[in-house]
């Protein structure tokens, strides 16, 4: 479960060669929206050469390809150039049953282990979420609120009240299959307070991570998706008490603790241990 997915443009060497220095848990090299139509080939050659020369070590790398239905020609070129690279998977824009099936067939033919993170950014796909979530090729689903609100002709706002249903739908679908639910990025670059608010909303709703469009946002997102010191201390207390007293139901500081709460404390400590040394 990655807390952050940092987008890096696929055709800017200065950014590409720095992709592992921003402490993001995962990066998404972008061939789609960040790259102009007449520069798609530049992004493909550049990214391929970079990954081959500097295979990613302590970071998961994904590539956002173009859209397999809307733009099959560019997308097939994308796939051919990345299929044998040592990356974790691809991010597929405007995911739906048809595009997932096409991409999965391509990967099956090539016996590729690459995973797919689907970008949920059209209204119709919300009624297929469970089918997508259950697909073995799918590692997670990511909300793309910019495209979604544009299509639906509604405003994007900081409270996110008008995308609450969209957010929660993805969270519930993904939690039911124990896969990643990744929130839409916060797009105001210099507004770190807004970022903190937005990321906290996402973490509270149950997202496992958040897309990030600027390196300076990684720390803020991690902060929201990392348990607070108080939460960690409480979890430690619960786990220790349960172990010491061999008990699964007890009263701790006036609060009732039972098995689900003990399990939750274990999970929290496990997650913290994994990310504890990074911020």
């Amino acid at each position: 479960m990655n807390r952050s997915y940092l987008f890096i443009p696929g055709d800017v060497p200065r950014m590409l060669q720095m992709l592992d220095v921003f402490d993001a848990d995962a990066v998404i090299i972008d061939f789609e929206d960040a790259v102009a139509l007449n520069q798609k080939d530049e992004a493909r050659f550049l990214t391929r050469n970079f990954i081959q020369t500097h295979p990613p070590k302590a970071i998961e790398v994904y590539i956002r390809i173009n859209h397999i239905i809307d733009d099959p020609k560019e997308t097939m070129k994308d796939l051919e150039m990345i299929i044998d690279l040592p990356i974790s998977g691809i991010v597929a824009p405007k995911i739906n049953r048809l595009s997932l099936a096409k991409l999965d067939r391509y990967f099956e033919e090539k016996t590729s282990p690459l995973k797919i993170i689907g970008l949920v950014e059209t209204p119709d796909v919300f009624f297929d979420l469970m089918t997508l979530a259950q697909h073995p090729r799918i590692q997670g689903l990511m909300l793309g609120a910019e495209d979604l609100t544009r299509i639906m002709n509604i405003e994007r706002n900081l409270t996110g009240d008008n995308i609450l249903w969209a957010r929660s739908s993805i969270v519930y679908a993904m939690h039911s299959v124990s896969k990643e639910a990744i929130d839409t990025p916060y797009t105001v670059i210099h507004d770190h307070q807004g970022l903190a608010k937005d990321a906290t909303i996402a973490a509270n709703l149950g997202f496992t991570g958040k897309a990030v469009i600027h390196p300076n946002h990684v720390e803020g997102v991690h902060l929201a998706f990392t348990p607070t010191e108080h939460q960690i201390l409480t979890a430690k207390k619960i786990v220790e008490y349960a172990k010491k007293n061999q008990s699964i139901r007890f009263n701790l500081d006036g609060k009732m603790v039972d098995k689900p709460i003990i399990d939750k404390a274990h999970a929290l400590l496990e997650k913290y241990a994994k990310n504890g040394d990074k911020s």
């Binding site: 060497p13 080939d41 530049e42 050659f45 550049l46 050469n49 970079f50 081959q52 020369t53």
Partner: peptide, 17 residues
């Protein structure tokens, strides 16, 4: 100040075109 991979990639793109 491009690294080798960038020079190679830019040239490969140019050759392809």
């Amino acid at each position: 100040g491009a690294l080798d991979y960038t020079i190679k990639a830019r040239l490969e793109t140019a050759i392809a075109r």
